[in-house]
Write a protein that binds this DNA or RNA. Structure first.
Lengths: 223, 223
DNA sequence: ATGGGAACATTGTTACACAATGTGCCACGC
DNA sequence: GCGTGGCACATTGTGTAACAATGTTCCCAT
């Protein structure tokens, strides 16, 4: 068929589509962190060339969901405790500044159009916790933080935060901090209220608590 | 030659080396923002295959120094005013949190081992301003901010900041804010002192000033 | 038991080809 | 003369096949 003007933009490239598919599976926890991702295997499994597979792995490498080491290959990323702390520090930087920008824009308090998407995200978290689906719960939890950051209307902070979100989902696919049923939702309702009052201090307290729970869960996993 | 155990790690891959070479040139302002980077041209100029060139362009795309659009190709990144503001907001997030972490670690003030590399970077900035070399000056300026962020010992904040630094160098390769000779150095000596006292407020004031100067310089360039 | 080296697995790169898409230009109709 | 459709062209995305380069594993000799 000869080229001709299209009425719509083309779909994602094959490499982008593979990256998306692998990203979804990785964030679901299968393949697990540390698993090698062999180019030829992926090429045959997805009926693609090694070139296309390599491009997809490079994309995931840039997102840090995959670790690519020259001549050694790609593996699903793992995260030690030092890396967890460093990641949470970066997360604190982004969420704190987002909350501060929100405060600048709304010095008299967050109006309903700021609160509504955040409250909706918390409601979604309540539903997920109620369904006892850990994957859905971690995604809904991420949605709450995403809604808060998005409200600041700072695209680069939002984008950087989205990348971290994926790394955190990868981590949480393998650990399960102790929360009583509904505990995450209650905690996040309080958290959002505290944000309006205390701003950055509330962010830091929340993330310190989160880090401690994750480390405790990981310690339990390795014992 | 048959494979044999090596006493050293291999050098960078050809794709990484090309990415590094292009990065250097882009940050020097040639090719200029908006310039198309044609795969076949680069392949012939560097005696590499298109696959290797594509891998290098993808790396630079991930760093946002290059904009890669499927089926349209790669161009040196450009930055409009909205993007500049968004970038500076992200920068504020990183530098503010770095300074806050420094304050946590050194509540009684920054000890000499924290100050020394920062002061050395400022001295390097003074030398660069004295030499009237704009490229050297923007790099030395970046070195000052890098030293401050590095002092916080938070690897993910430092790495995210390094990526922004490259984008800012790209921007500054094309504009030149008005500074009297030595003005940048004096301003940054005061800035570092203010950081110890005022922390995040000093960061925000500094970046707001920087944004205003850059926008003014860009406005002058387009008129 | 240990270490050197060969074999093997895997990745990085190359050459060449073709499919897919976007852009520009030309011709035709009004 | 102008606008639009369509074709040609340039460029990118992907594929095949091969080989160079590197890291790992295993075997054999000491």
């Amino acid at each position: 068929m000869s080229p001709r003007r299209r009425d719509s933009t083309p779909g994602p490239t094959a490499a982008a589509a593979l990256a998306e598919s692998l990203r979804e599976r990785i964030l679901e926890g299968d393949p697990a962190p540390g698993t090698a991702l062999r180019e030829e295997e992926l090429a045959q499994a997805h009926d693609l060339s090694r070139h296309t597979v390599r491009a997809a792995l490079a994309m995931l490498g840039a997102e840090r969901l995959v670790e690519v080491v020259p001549y050694r290959g790609a593996r699903v990323a793992t995260l030690d405790d030092a890396a967890l702390i460093a990641l949470q520090q970066l997360r604190a930087a982004l969420e704190t500044e987002a909350v501060r920008l929100l405060g600048d824009t709304h010095p008299s308090g967050w109006p309903i159009e700021v609160r509504a998407p955040i409250d909706a995200a918390i409601d979604a978290l309540a539903s997920a916790e109620g369904s006892a689906d850990w994957s859905a719960t971690t995604r809904a939890h991420a949605g709450v933080h995403r809604a808060i950051v998005a409200a600041a209307d700072s695209p680069r902070i939002a984008e950087a935060h989205a990348h971290l979100e994926a790394e955190i989902l990868l981590l949480l696919a393998q650990v399960r901090p102790d929360y009583p049923s509904g505990g995450l939702t209650a905690e996040h309702r309080s958290y959002v209220d505290a944000l309006g009052r205390e701003g950055g201090a509330a962010v830091r307290e929340h993330l310190a608590h989160s880090t401690a729970l994750i480390r405790a869960a990981r310690a339990k996993n390795t014992n």
